[in-house]
Design a binder for these strands. Structure first.
Length: 870
RNA sequence: GGGGAUGUAGCUCAGUUGGCUAGAGUGCUUGACUGGCAGUCAAGAGGUCACGGGUUCGAAUCCCGUCUUCUCCA
């Protein structure tokens, strides 16, 4: 069975069982500080389980792309070494939110596996929860009893809390689970060892394929479990593993999910899979990682040096490293796999196909930049190896190479061992640990439990219509971090505060109680669909009623910038073409930033056209036409642009200004005229194929023009009110340059003249041409004269003094010949004579200068000079 | 968010404890030579030593701040 068919059969099976089929949510999470990527099928539905949002349907099924690369489930370093760990994988899942429970979940799972997919029931095992004394939970006999209707009782195994009790986190919804395992070993092996003993033992051919979670408890902060009024089903089936079973192969990498990519790698690198273990590992690493990276880029997450982007960069670099070391690929090649990937997965995940070109460009650029890093590292490592004492390279040195220059430590170790050297791994790890400690300390944060004030989960956002409201607090908690100190997160029953999202910053403002006392709200964010207000302290009477007021000025400026962002988006697509896609935006009160896909630098004309386009729409006084809670299809039909990597509900909000229509949750001006004016302040590249525009509007533009105007008039003033200041300035610059030249030649001439005079004043002392004299020259002049004279004698000793700006200066020149013969040192001379002018100095043996505060001492210093040659 | 590195001629980079007339290679201009692989030789132009402060007689160099780029950690 082809993987495409495996996927579609799953979805249609649950569609028949009255499930709503939803597309995979984007992998990159934007409003969950505890998680960077979707790492399981349930992550996009977290808010439903927490009760923060009502589900759109109580039966849902989907296939969800998941990424496990950071945090608790970190498999990254294992990927490639076995046949079943992946960074990116698909999880097929069906959900019940307060609807069906164990009976149906088990019956359908069995029906799908054995009837639809036709898996032999004799290779299946199931597990049920055995109970846990500490939690006071009993064995899950319900699940056991349902199972025994389908499967022999000796194939139902009991599992402990670790394997068979699923929890989302330290607190929240949880419950027992029941896993389905499959044993695909050969008959001989089965005869030798019973599959029963291998379940949950990390055997590559006895694997869990499906986990059915029965959410029936809520774990409270105290650790106590309470029974949930609404019970939920959460299931997750590993798509790649299922394909392995259905295609009768022994490894996920032998399924048609991976084989097209592996064949392509073989072609490009001229290596064969399944011949040499090291090559195999590299091929598996690359085939896995290219998927993760391509999907992330398609979801709008570009490689970068912080946060989620950094994780993506690390994955890609790991792939490059393996290709570099084991497949001898020293030039970019991973980007060439994107085509094959699009062909095999593009149908189920259209975002891949649409953005193929961009994905290829970004990956290629990243590969190139990392190969440069490797080149640089190799040079540095060579230097380190040459300087190594004994046969051990210190951990500090290796760490510096890794930390500062990004050279992978395993490559360092490999190259060292090839050269017969050893790496001090202990020292390296100690340094790494130090660095981790530093980072952790800096970002250390402690979060207290939520304190509930009123039990009201239905929080309402009213900030589209009003900036002020009478509110009550529903819950709060304290969070402490090193950077911000103690802060309170506060939730209201309803709020006019816009939480950070869609690129737009969160609102600021204040809460005022009946007595007029005020608490400032310094930021607003959204977490699992709950709007959280940040304050430095709590109001005195938390049970009271408060007037919540949004900082209107800041909000208005932000709205100007947000609306301008939409117009800018429209302008770019109009002027550059429809290949322009939004790749990110930041809407602040002071400026806006817009990243988009485009392949070349914008010309001055294009920038001007874009600016004009936007400003025409501002002058056009276009009114805001806002539609809330309309079906997504309706909005799309109207021409609304939706973004890849953005998670939309079934009903959306559409924002229209003239011909610009976007799905958007942000706040906007009521008429484009409010923006006053739009001005681009910079354009540049952020990655290959991605450009960035920064712009300002309204008050910021006024300030911008004021500033520029003032600078302009200041400049014109300085140029005696020149009519054409640019020309005047240019003339000045040219004049300045030629004057500089003239001075330089004049000084050289002067030096020559003086040289001629001084030559006559030289006195021979002990075979040395000697002179000590005060001259009316600056430091450069002294030098010139000294070197001019110096080039004519090889037995010269001169000391010049001069007074400049009330400071004394000495210059001493001694022919190199003399330095060698008579053991003289100009540096030493000026240092010793420097004390007469209350200063010091130095230089090289043949030429040195000294400065001091006491010009009166120059003559004395000069008179002492003779002592060096007698 | 935290740490480390980086910024010097069009390009690639040296520049030690503060004092080297700011350098090399390459590229550019000019001239001469030339049957040999990047032709040779000579002369020349080209610099806000990232930016802003400070210390010092003196800062490319030391200190503080800002920015750029790279990089590791979270």
């Amino acid at each position: 069975m082809k993987s495409q068919e495996v996927r579609s059969k799953f979805l249609s099976f649950f569609e028949d069982k009255k499930h709503t089929i939803v597309p995979s949510a984007p992998m990159v999470l934007k409003d969950d500080p505890t998680l960077m990527f979707v790492n399981s099928g349930m992550a996009p539905f977290k808010e439903y389980f927490l009760g923060n949002t009502a589900p759109k349907s109580n039966r849902i099924a989907d296939t969800q792309k998941c990424l496990r690369v950071s945090g608790k489930h970190n498999d990254l370093e294992e990927v490639g070494y076995d046949t079943y760990h992946h960074t990116l994988f698909e999880m097929l899942g069906n959900w019940s939110f307060g609807d069906y429970f164990k009976k149906e979940a088990i019956a359908w799972a069995w029906e799908l596996l054995t009837k639809v997919y036709g898996i032999d029931k004799d290779i299946l095992y199931v597990t049920v929860f055995e109970g846990d004394e500490d939690d006071g939970t009993k064995m899950d006999t319900e699940a056991y009893d349902f199972w025994k209707e389908y499967i022999a009782e000796d194939r139902i195994l009991k599992g402990n809390k670790k394997d068979n009790f699923w929890e989302m986190g330290d607190q929240g919804p949880c419950g027992p689970c029941s896993e389905i395992h499959v044993d695909i070993r050969s008959a001989e092996e089965k005869a030798k060892v019973s599959g029963k003993t291998l379940v949950n033992m990390d055997h590559p051919q006895v694997v869990e394929i499906w986990n059915l979670v029965f959410m029936q408890y809520n774990r409270k902060a105290s650790g106590v479990l309470e029974t949930l009024p609404n019970k939920h089903i959460d299931t997750g089936m590993g798509f790649e593993r299922l394909c392995m079973v259905l295609q009768g192969v022994q490894s996920n990498y032998d399924t048609d999910v991976f084989t097209p990519i592996i064949r392509e790698i073989e072609t490009i690198t001229n290596k064969d899979y399944a011949k040499d273990e090291k090559v195999d590992i590299a091929i598996r690493v690359i085939s896995d990682h290219v998927r993760a990276v391509a999907f992330s880029i398609a979801d709008g997450q570009l490689p970068s040096n912080t946060g989620a982007g950094y994780v993506i960069r690390r994955i890609l670099r790991r792939a490059v490293r393996y290709g570099f070391t084991f497949l001898d690929k020293k030039e970019p090649f991973i980007y060439r796999l994107v085509g094959v990937l699009c062909e095999s997965m593009g149908k189920a995940f259209p975002e891949l196909k649409v953005q193929k070109q961009l994905i290829e460009n970004v990956i290629k650029e990243e590969e190139q930049s990392f190969l440069r890093t490797l080149d640089q590292g190799l040079v540095l490592l060579n230097g380190i190896m040459k300087g190594a004492k004994g046969d051990v390279v210190s951990g500090e040195k290796a760490f510096e190479l890794y930390d500062t220059y990004g050279f992978p430590i395993d490559l360092t170790a490999l190259i060292l061992s090839e050269k017969g050297l050893k790496l001090d791994e202990k020292g390296f790890n100690a340094q790494l640990e130090k660095q981790k400690k530093r980072s952790r300390a800096a970002s250390e944060m402690s979060t207290d439990d939520w304190t509930n004030i009123v039990d009201d989960r239905e929080q309402e956002f009213i900030g589209y219509d009003t900036l002020e409201a009478q509110v009550k607090l529903t819950r709060y908690r304290k969070v402490s971090s090193k950077k911000d100190g103690d802060m309170y997160q506060i939730v209201f029953n309803l709020t006019p505060f816009y939480p950070e999202g869609g690129g737009q910053v969160g609102d600021k403002g204040y809460l005022q109680d009946a007595h007029g006392d005020v608490v400032y709200i310094i930021d607003t964010k959204k977490e699992s669909n709950v709007i959280i207000h940040y304050a430095k302290n709590l109001p005195k009477d938390i049970n009271g009623s408060f007037k919540a007021v949004v900082d209107a000025k800041q909000r208005h400026r932000t709205e100007c910038n947000h609306t301008a962002t939409h117009l800018l988006h429209q302008a770019l697509r109009e002027i550059l073409g429809t290949h322009v896609e939004q790749k990110g935006s930041a809407v602040h009160s002071k400026y806006l930033r817009f990243d988009f896909s485009h392949f070349s630098k914008l010309t001055v004309e294009e920038l001007r056209d874009v600016e004009n386009f936007v400003n025409r729409r501002i002058e056009g006084k276009l009114p805001l036409i806002e539609k809330r809670n309309i079906p997504k299809e309706e909005a799309i039909a109207e021409g609304a642009m939706s973004l890849f990597g953005e998670k939309y509900g079934d009903t959306v909000r559409s924002i229209r200004f003239g011909q610009s229509v976007e799905l958007c949750g942000g706040t906007h001006v009521s008429n484009t005229a409010d923006i006053w004016h739009f001005k681009i302040v910079s354009e540049g590249a952020v990655a290959s194929g991605i450009r960035r525009i920064e712009a300002i509007t309204s008050d910021a533009v006024k300030e911008f023009y004021h500033e520029n105007n003032r600078a302009y008039y200041d400049m014109r003033d300085l140029l005696n009110n020149a009519k054409e200041p640019v020309k005047a300035l240019k003339n000045l610059q040219e004049e300045n340059a030629s004057l500089k030249k003239q001075i330089e030649t004049l000084l050289k001439d002067k030096a020559k003249n003086i040289k001629a005079e001084l030559k006559n004043e030289l006195k021979e002392v002990n075979g040395v041409q000697f002179l000590a004299k005060k001259l009316d020259l600056d430091a450069g002049g002294l030098k010139d004269v000294a070197f001019e004279l110096g080039s004519q004698f090889d037995n010269l000793f001169v000391l010049f003094g001069t007074e400049q700006n009330g400071k004394a200066l000495l210059s001493c020149y001694i022919s190199k010949q003399l330095v060698a013969d008579k053991d003289l040192n100009a540096g030493q001379v000026v240092r010793e004579l420097g004390k007469y002018i209350q200063g010091g100095g130095g230089g090289q043996p043949f030429f040195a200068t000294a400065g001091g505060k006491n010009p009166a001492g120059i003559d004395e210093a000069l008179s002492k000079a003779k002592e060096y040659v007698v």
